[in-house]
Nucleic acid binder design. Structure first.
Lengths: 190, 190, 190, 190
DNA sequence: GATGAATGAGCTTTCATTCAT
DNA sequence: AATGAATGAAAGCTCATTCAT
């Protein structure tokens, strides 16, 4: 494990336990068994470290999601692929995944238009669904939000210990539920 | 507006813009037009202020949600009441509401069993639905998570400017979608 | 007990336990059952209170000591009177007395020439002893220091719990010891 | 001179002039020509610094006193050794010595049983004197207090400018006086 | 005389960052 | 590449003091 990776792992671990602000560079250095100064050879600052780690993983997730649906044609298949991919990633690197989810609010302002995001991948799938007629409801942003939230909260509730064990086992139920969500027809506002 | 309320409003405003850690007591005091020391007459510390405000509003939401469903018998009615109440509260006090949602991760560890939470209110409604047969799926915790997440994300995406305008207008679509979610039957795991 | 006296008693009590610096006006007010602001009706400041109380008691001791020897002619009688008076005062108002002794270092710089001090009273007795021939040693300041220190330390060691119980019972032994001290002849420095 | 020693010297100097409470860490840092933060690399806090310096010197004195009498057999010799050692130390490092004496009241509560103290060394000498018959009076704690006080006050009165110049020159007179003190026979209390 | 909320200067302490080694 | 002592800006917080009631 490289020095850089040791720093990342130690940092994310501490960030999750205490938050970025309450985590000191001294703690990170001690946990990674490097000198405090060494952090600055790989990252511009503590906040820069927090951001860079978020950004890399954020984009990693987006790429994985995009690849997971690349072969699918059918909407239901796409949903299943996305959900499965998402849950598998959460199970496989729980530390990074939970850090990604809980630190979103902090970093979202810094996400620029040119970056590929999970939200964009999902939006694209939904919009394709609308254009091909599989999705009747035309309020894409509301649907997309609800779908994304539904899956996110599964992970968040595991962080809060309201759900235990691997999440991948729930992929069918979750996919089915989401399939039902997108099938809803548009409402006429009174 | 009392000194305490001025402090709360100024603090939450700054917390939302910069996060708790990056907000200084000096800023809060200046914004509330009180002396820095006055913060400590009403709150034990900056973090204590952040927690207390979260806690009060968290419980306020729970109570409002509980009241909103108290008259309903039908499951669909309950869902509609909860969704409407939730969205109305978000629209009415957007500042507090968005602070509540974005600071959840920080404060959830400190929530004790004896506190009434929105999650509890929703869980109760879902479990009643299961026991009365309206909900077929018996994985209450997964359903509850997805439902909660779906509604939360609506608000979060407004914070991220992915959704614009009042949220209350979407109550019918959201309620209908959630009604569809809970109607899903249980899956048999392979 | 007047408000002023309640403040003094509470303050001195706290000063002894924690030192003047670590004692807050809030504590004094709470202990004296008055409002914080009321302290300032009787004293100019916290440090002013500490000083004023010291000064009053310091002079009170000096006056008592002076009176105690006013009738005595014989040197041994004078020593016995001073010692007895000193010990009796310590026993009678232990709180004030121990405050006086332990806070001396802090306040000594502020003692002006015109104030009557215990040290002056003792010096006078010693110098009379020298001039009447009862004391052979002419290094008055060294003798006086040693005599004063011998008696002081009795009280200090009670503060440190190295001596227990009333001090007045030791008056004979102490007087006798001091009588022996002043009887020492001068040394010729090599 | 090491960073730590520069901090100690500057701190003690300021503590003597103004007291610990009125001395700021800024002043210490400026006087020692180090950054404020550097104080905390060597000491846990300002009070911790005050205590640690006291403790080290307190124990240093105790060790020196113990060594000074280690070769002596005769009681009078012991007294002379202790007095000479004590006065020499005062003359040699006046700053530390006067800090030690004036800050005793503050720190005495924190002295634990396992620490070697000057008081213990003196007590041992007195008790040996009693057991070997050189000291008739069996109230060891009263004698010890008086002897200790007599020598302390010499130093204190120099702090108060009541005595000028080196103290070591007075060693013969002081030793002789103390020898007379311990020779006093016990009193029968009426 | 008494109160105690409000003040704000100034304190101790922390800690991200630098840089000589 | 790695170190960790030194830095010093800036933070949270305290608390003596004031003053309208």
């Amino acid at each position: 494990m490289s020095t850089r990776d040791r720093i990342i792992k130690s940092a994310v671990n501490l960030f999750m336990q205490q938050g970025v602000a309450k985590t000191t560079t001294k703690q990170i250095a001690a946990s990674a068994a490097v000198a405090e100064g060494s952090i600055y050879r790989y990252f511009p600052s503590k906040d820069g470290l927090a951001w860079q780690v978020f950004k890399e993983y954020h984009q990693h997730i987006a790429v994985q999601l995009q690849q997971s649906v690349s072969q699918d044609i059918n909407l239901e298949e796409k949903i299943h692929s996305l959900v499965s991919c998402f849950l598998k990633m959460a199970d496989e690197d729980w530390l990074m995944f939970s850090y990604y989810l809980t630190s979103q609010h902090t970093h979202m302002k810094s996400v620029t238009e040119d970056m590929l995001t999970p939200y964009q991948v999902l939006t694209e799938v939904v919009e394709q669904g609308i254009s091909t007629g599989g999705i009747k409801n035309i309020e894409a942003n509301v649907i997309t939000a609800m779908v994304m939230g539904a899956v996110h909260q599964i992970v968040i509730n595991k962080i809060y210990s309201r759900i235990k064990g691997d999440l991948y086992v729930h992929r069918k139920l979750i996919s089915k539920t989401i399939a039902a969500m997108v099938r809803i027809e548009a409402c006429h506002y009174e």
